[in-house]
Amino acid sequence: MGISFRSSDSAFFDLFTTTADHLVKGIAILDEIVHQDILERATLRDQLHEIEQAADLTTHQVIKTLNATFVTPIDREDIAELAHVLDDCMDYVDEAGDLIVLYQLEELPAGIFEQVKLLDQCAQLTATAMPGLRKMEGLRDYWIEINRLENAGDRVYRDMLATIFASGTDALTVIKLKDIIETLEKAMDRFEALANTVEAIAIKES
């Protein structure tokens, strides 16, 4: 790819929207994983891996386009940060699916279903918000709602940890559940970081 003096104004935003769509699809698969029995989970995990790999390719395309573009529609460091945090969200979703399959837990606590539901809401909001970056319009409600969802996720996370440690469950199962719960919480945290990044960009560009 040669150096372009100026990117298409929509090129980066189209790629961010594509990544957000991957997140929506990935979390839909994760939701299927947590509701399926052990025998069905591995096939779904493989589908989730495919979505994560597609998201990786989109992230690489963002960086490739960034490196080949002299003038960008928003600051270069902001483009790189958006790509990085979107990638983190997808990576933690993929990791959570992998852990659920690898640990082979017959039953998952209801709090995990709630965490995945909150992640789905974050992904849906993100997919709706990404096109708004083109004109920096209609984004305030997005970052406010993401922060609210992340706070709800924190409460679910703390309640689950307290419950599993007080449940008398064997230590190995507690460790496995803690790994899954913490990975889902990290995904929630990255969605909040993404919303905070969008807020900072919107303020800068206003």
Rank of each mutant, 00 (worst) to 15 (best):
E150T: 02
L149F: 03
L105V: 00
E107K: 11
E52W: 08
G168L: 08
T197E: 11
H84D: 13
K186R: 14
T173N: 04
V24M: 07
M1K: 09
I63G: 03
N67G: 02
S167K: 07
S4L: 11
T65P: 00
V116Q: 06
S206N: 15
F113T: 03
W143A: 03
E32K: 14
D98H: 12
F165G: 05
Y142T: 06
T43C: 03
D56S: 08
T65Y: 12
T18R: 15
A83H: 02
M1S: 12
V85W: 00
K176Q: 15
T163Y: 02
A127S: 13
Q115H: 15
T173A: 05
R158G: 01
I38A: 14
E77D: 14
E40I: 02
R155Q: 13
V93K: 02
E95Q: 11
P131N: 06
K186F: 02
L57H: 10
V116A: 05
A123H: 09
F13D: 00
V101E: 14
T19W: 01
M130S: 01
D14M: 04
Y92R: 09
A80Y: 11
K186D: 11
E95L: 06
I74Y: 01
Q124T: 14
E107T: 11
M130E: 08
A129H: 05
I146G: 04
L102S: 14
I74M: 15
I181S: 01
D78H: 13
L118Y: 07
N67I: 04
D9C: 00
K117D: 09
V34R: 09
A129N: 03
N147G: 14
D9S: 10
I29Q: 08
M90P: 00
D14L: 04
H60F: 10
G168A: 03
R190F: 13
K178H: 06
S7L: 08
